[in-house]
Amino acid sequence: METTIAGKQVKLNEQGYLTDLNEWNRDVAAALAAEEGVELGEEHWPVLEYLQSQHKQEVPLTIRNVGKSGIVDIKGFYALFPGGPLKKASRIAGIPKPASCI
């Protein structure tokens, strides 16, 4: 689905996740964050960049590897993205939602 977020034309899948990370920028991230009820501040960006780098290396994302990243611990990750940190942070970072096989 094509739509416009923060003045930028982007493609989203049916669950509202960007399908092309190249369409991501910080304004798009802030708009997606607002939809998730998150106001982005200084502490969010290193976490989002970490998730993007892991995604580019094809490393499956887990709460555990975020917690061991040295950037934020698991409780801190929850504090930044309350409710469903991996799900929300992935959407804001412009990468696919962590999913199981079904």
């Binding site: 469903g84 799900k87 999913a99 199981s100 079904i102």
Partner: peptide, 16 residues
């Protein structure tokens, strides 16, 4: 589950 539902893929989630 730590995932966002018992079914996480859109078609499976919709149909099952």
């Amino acid at each position: 589950t730590p995932m966002d539902g018992a079914f996480t893929k859109p078609v499976a989630s919709d149909q099952l």
